[in-house]
Every structure is written in C-alpha cells, then in structure tokens.
Design a protein around this nucleic acid. Structure first.
Length: 207
DNA sequence: TGCTTGATTAACT
DNA sequence: GTTAATCAAGCAC
C-alpha cells in the first residue's frame, strides 16, 4: 500500500444529452476529461461490458495504468500519428492496439480532445459470461488478468478500436460500478521509459 | 525496403 | 529464471 488518493464520492457523472436525432446517447463521465493519472483511479470498479459476437461478458475493472502525452512511455508521446490518433480523440473512446505482435491491449481515451491521454485496462474480476470467457481463452486460469488476457476474454480486437464506450448501441460499453475500498499505487509494468511514474492503480478489497 | 523494438504471455528449465 | 511465439509501428537508410 503506497497511498490512497481521495476519490471523492462515487457520484456517477455520466451526462445525458439529446442528440439531434431520436437516439439518446451518453457522453463520458466528467472525470474522464482529466489527464490519465487523475482519471485512471476513478475508473477502478467500473464495469466493462462486451456483447461482441452476440455473447455477453462483463468484468469489474481492478487494475489500470495511466499514459499521458508528455510521457515517453506513452504511444501518444510525439503527437498524433499512425495507430495512436484515437488517443487524441474525445474521451470515452476505446483504443485497441496490437502488442508484441501477439496480443490486443485496450485503453480508454481520457483527457480533453487533442491531449493524447489514455488508461490501459490491465485486469478485472468476472461479473458475467464466465463460460464465454473460458471458451475464448481456451482455459480457466488467469481469465481476465493481464491486458492481453482481458482483451481475449472479452473478444476485443483491433476491430473495436475507436468504439464509443458510452454509446448504448456499442458492442463494448463502460457502466458505473462500485468504487474499491482502497487503491494500491505502483510503478507501471512492462515499460522501459518513465518507469518511475507511480501510475499503476489496483483495486484493493478488504480480506 | 529492411531492421529493431515492444504498455505480453505461457511454456519451459 | 529463461525463452519462444509473432507482427505492427517506427525509424534508418
């Protein structure tokens, strides 16, 4: 336990508005308009729901990492180009990229438009669709721990890059959940630059 | 066009 | 602990 940021209340800040058409949609909660290191701990406990391939699978986020535009470890460092352009788009979009040529990794874009900030989703606890996840993973161990495993369990691939996680019509959505009792903060995993930044956040439950 | 690196994982010893 | 799997992005030439 390194520390525990003040999370404030658990108010769900999703703001509803009417689009020009008949479809009502949600925009990202207010905290996602902050830079990743501030927004990331607030994302713990939120539910990530996938209806990819018509099968429901859902988890509660328990581990995330923050990546910022001014952070040499971030894909957005150096400005928008190539695969990272979605990081500079509006908060609440999903950024999915291929890691090590093998795995898919999912991020939630945060910060203001053009800021290039995102939150890497590293782990969660299963809420629904465990059988679906086991089927996709081909095993029951480490179902949703590790960013690659998490994506595989939910069926997320590059096809889902730039999906709006707050559009009710999206196959992948973020839904409010229960904030953790406390949060453990550590340096990030698997990076070689800016390794001192304490931008990895883990949900800690008593017991 | 070709080489190097990498926000990883799992199966090894 | 060590290593293989495997490929897109980024960069040098």
């Amino acid at each position: 336990m390194v520390g525990m940021p003040s999370l404030g209340d658990a108010r769900i800040a999703a703001v509803e508005y009417r689009a020009l058409g008949p479809v009502r949609r949600l925009v990202a909660p207010e905290f996602l308009y902050e830079l990743a290191d501030r927004a990331a701990p607030r994302l713990l406990g939120w539910h990530l729901e996938s209806r990819v391939d018509g099968m429901l699978s859902k988890l509660a986020l328990t581990e995330v990492e923050a990546y910022r535009f001014d952070d040499p470890a971030s894909h957005s460092f150096g400005g928008p180009r190539g695969r990272n352009v979605v990081m500079f788009d509006r908060p609440g979009l999903l950024y999915v990229y291929r890691s090590y040529g093998l795995h898919w990794c999912a991020n939630v874009v945060c910060g203001k438009v053009g800021e290039g900030s995102a939150i890497l989703l590293r782990a969660g606890t299963v809420i629904a669709g465990e059988e679906t996840m086991i089927s996709r993973r081909g095993r029951s161990a480490n179902l949703t721990t590790g960013p690659g495993n998490l994506c595989q369990a939910l069926g997320l691939t590059g096809l889902h890059n730039k999906i709006d996680l707050f559009d009710p019509r999206s196959p992948v959505r973020l839904l409010p959940g229960k904030p953790p009792s406390s949060i453990r903060i550590t340096p990030r995993i698997g990076i070689s630059k800016a390794i001192d930044k304490p931008w990895r956040f883990l949900a800690v439950e008593p017991g």
